[in-house]
């Protein structure tokens, strides 16, 4: 049927083999290295590193930062996607570009901009100092930097989907007397829930794993402003390699779970639409 465009077996087999080899070396090997290094001296030192009070407080801080940053970007992302895909106004293209802008900004710059605003010599630094408000080297700074780097995730997964779905059902609900909140809750959100969940998952994974942006605003105060990735760096710089890799392995698991959940969600939404892979 498709004989003419079928690759010869030697070619396809060779290419598949090469691709698998590349994936093993470039992608799987680093992952394997993290777990091997973490368990180099058995489970006990790894467990000790993870249950160390400083590590626990880093985990707590990481969860707290994500628990604030992710909802902010979820609400903003839904509003942004609604504005772009369901409303008509001049400059929609520009709005999409601006929403995606943080992806092309270096994480270090994402932290730097908040230092320029709130640092000791920043624009609002003296005022904050006079009023004894701590933003940098404290929770608010970590949250702000995290919001910056994870800003586009939710909006970006929703916008193409909502544009593709169209708004006929929302209009039907409107003619039947539904108000804005009812339309959003009963019509739009059920239509986008899997994509929304995938966007939130990716946003969360990046929020918990972010390094560069929070490194700039954290001040590295052990047990106070250290998130998990920063704790990994401190342990590594102190030559506590097993500890560093043990905490890193925990973060790698977070990435793997996110990847698995995202793949499952994609399969789920594909089945819902009646199509197949």
């Amino acid at each position: 049927m498709r004989e003419a465009t079928r690759d010869p077996t030697w070619l396809s087999a060779g290419l598949i083999g090469l691709a698998v080899l590349i994936a093993l070396v470039v992608l799987v090997l680093p992952l394997a290295a993290v777990f091997t290094e973490a368990l180099r001296r058995g489970w006990e030192p790894a467990w000790e590193a993870i249950t160390d009070p400083d590590a626990i407080s880093a985990m707590y801080l990481t969860l707290l930062v994500a628990a604030i940053a992710v909802p902010v970007n979820t609400i903003g992302g839904i509003a942004g996607a609604w504005a772009v895909a369901r409303c008509d106004f001049p400059g929609r293209r520009l709005l999409v570009t601006l929403i995606e802008l943080p992806f092309s900004v270096s994480p270090v710059i994402s932290g730097l901009v908040y230092v320029l605003l709130f640092g000791a010599q920043g624009y609002f630094g003296p005022w904050l100092q006079a009023h004894d408000i701590q933003i940098l080297f404290a929770l608010p700074g970590l949250v702000l930097a995290t919001i910056f780097v994870t800003f586009p995730f939710v909006a970006r997964t929703l916008i193409p989907l909502m544009q593709e779905q169209g708004q006929a059902e929302e209009e039907a609900a409107l003619t039947l007397g539904a108000n804005t909140a009812q339309i959003l809750w009963h019509v739009t959100l059920p239509k986008i829930r899997w994509a929304l969940l995938a966007g939130i998952l990716l946003c969360n994974a990046r929020a918990m794993g972010e390094f560069g942006a929070v490194a700039v605003v954290s001040g590295h105060i052990r047990g106070e402003t250290n998130t998990m990735p920063l704790h990994v760096e401190i342990l590594y710089n102190e030559y506590q390699f097993v500890g560093a890799f043990a905490v890193a392995a925990l973060l790698a698991l977070l990435g793997l779970v996110t990847l698995g959940a995202k793949t499952a969600l994609e399969l789920l939404s594909r089945q819902r639409m009646g199509g197949h892979a």
């Binding site: 290295a33 994480p107 972010e210 560069g212 990735p229 973060l251 990847l259 995202k262």
Partner: peptide, 14 residues
Amino acid sequence: DLPFALPTAVAGLA
């Protein structure tokens, strides 16, 4: 997608 999902510090260490 692994490099998207793996925290950068972990990738660096690995």
